[in-house]
Write a protein that binds this DNA or RNA. Structure first.
Lengths: 244, 244
DNA sequence: CCAAAAGTGTTTCGTATACACCCATGT
DNA sequence: ACATGGGTGTATACGAAACACTTTTGG
């Protein structure tokens, strides 16, 4: 129960992470482990904003609380404003109790964020609320309209992935081209031709090959590459569409 | 001063219209003509939302009040949430007086909308507030952060125009290909090759040529076309990118 | 030597671009 | 007849797509 919350506006974060195989979303328990409600109710990380806080700052705050990370990629992608969105079930009661405020209508601003899954660390809150990664393909039922928020976030991510270099936020700094391809395939839900994919990627001037290879793999180690954001920004005037 | 406003959230509309030559935005006076403030202060059409109103409904309401039109194309494109966005000048005082509410922080949700400029009609409010079209290239200084909102809206429009058939919202139902081209040129700020443009458009299965021509022009009348939204939606799975 | 994934070239086809003149109409 | 914008075709270049085998490493 924080000081000075604004009880009319909240922020919810759809945190995406890629485990090398499929896309995942970070979910937390509605109630901390030791609370009197040991129900399995799940939700997105999110909160009411503080009275004079910027929305993006609120989203960063929440993300840091649950992943330990700073400077996460964040994008506002929607507003969920149905006056009835909180009405069903006992979740509204829960919110009133938790915040200690008289909640009437809460408009929530949704952000998606992209994190390198193995950079995230455990925090007090991530432990207390059992923060866990769930594959996008099998998200359980969540409170309020959080399932719809995730659906919507995935659509936007799929669209924006085609025109912006978002994928590098999800991969390790040094990545193999085939990892990148698997990421695209996971998000777009289709399979791509490996030879054509490599050609396209290697043509991009802002992807730099390193003289360095994977270590400790039980087969031929792949060459590693880095994304050079400086070079990317220089070319950006040309509406560089990225991959199809 | 309306009943039951929510003093924390407002909606502002960037209404675009195309006059056949350049892109325009609808602006209104801050104060009605007969008010005690006959200053020339200008703003976007916008308002605080009603307590249990959907944001899109608020935007429609505002647009109908100022253009007489229903069923306008509307798209939410941003949120302006700086806690200081209202602080400068006397505009905050004005807002407090006008609404009769104790305003602290207002987060505004921005919509852009696209209208056929000559369909819009005069209404009580459009007259009282001197609603007028201003060319995007020469927008005067507006109150609050409304200039930034317009800038931002134009960027989003430019981007989305390339992947969605928005242009037909700005043109008459029956249009000539060259009108369409002038619209693209106006919004993208570049000139396009007429022959290639025609080919591209005529290849699109959802643009139907009519056996009908312009009337009353002092030169060869152009063939008219219509946009078939049904057909467009059927093809949409294919991520149909539109024009470059 | 075997398993597993990395890496490599060529052909074909469609679409993008560049470019200049004649046509139909109203006055 | 003339002024105004409407309408047309071709050649070239580039990028997208389809497609199968060899290489390198660790175990």
């Amino acid at each position: 129960m924080k000081a000075d919350l604004n009880p009319h506006i909240s922020v919810d974060c759809v945190v995406f992470g890629f485990d090398g195989n499929e896309l995942n979303v970070l979910l937390i328990n509605r109630d901390p482990a030791d609370a009197s409600h040991p129900t399995g109710k799940l939700k997105l990380p999110g909160d009411l904003i503080i009275r004079s806080e910027m929305l993006a700052a609120a989203a960063q705050r929440i993300l840091t609380e649950f992943t330990g990370l700073h400077d996460i990629y964040l994008k506002q992608f929607g507003i969920f404003d149905d006056p009835q969105r909180l009405d069903s079930s006992d979740d509204l009661e829960w919110l009133r109790n938790r915040s200690g405020l008289s909640i009437e209508r809460v408009v929530t601003v949704a952000y998606y964020s992209l994190v390198k899954i193995n950079h995230s660390i455990q925090t007090d809150l991530s432990i207390a609320y059992h923060a866990c990664w769930y594959p996008c393909a099998s998200i359980p039922a969540l409170i309020f309209d959080h399932n719809r928020i995730i659906e919507n976030g995935m659509e936007v991510l799929r669209r924006e992935l085609l025109t912006e270099p978002l994928c590098f936020e999800l991969l390790p700094d040094k990545f193999a081209i085939n990892q990148l391809q698997r990421l695209y395939e996971a998000i777009l839900g289709c399979s791509l031709d490996n030879r054509n994919f490599r050609k396209k990627i290697q043509r991009l001037p802002y992807i730099e090959p390193l003289n360095e290879r994977q270590k400790g793999v039980p087969h031929k180690p792949a060459r590693l590459h880095v994304f050079d954001n400086e070079k990317y920004l220089l070319l950006k005037k040309d509406h560089t569409i990225f991959i199809l």
